[in-house]
Amino acid sequence: MNGIGTLKDLRQGQAARVKALLSKGSIRRRLLDMGLTEGTRVECLQKSPAGDPTAYLIRGAVIALRTEDSSKILIYA
């Protein structure tokens, strides 16, 4: 995976780094609180059986995010 995409595009088992957050306000705050700062490595672990949300490995913690929110996180390889 090269160039810039969003976290939503990450497939199971793939990893990437955070480029920027597109969300504003309290959501942005929450994402940052989880440690999603620029350059942080994120790995896609698995999708929920219903297809959404998806579990990501972020700084040693497993956190599930919905597509709506993960599509607002820009990543690079």
Binding site: S23, S26, I27, R30, V62, I63, A64, D69
Partner: peptide
């Protein structure tokens, strides 16, 4: 609308 959702799956 549904709001932001983040759920930790603890060990």
């Amino acid at each position: 609308m549904p709001s932001f959702f983040a759920l930790e799956l603890p060990p």
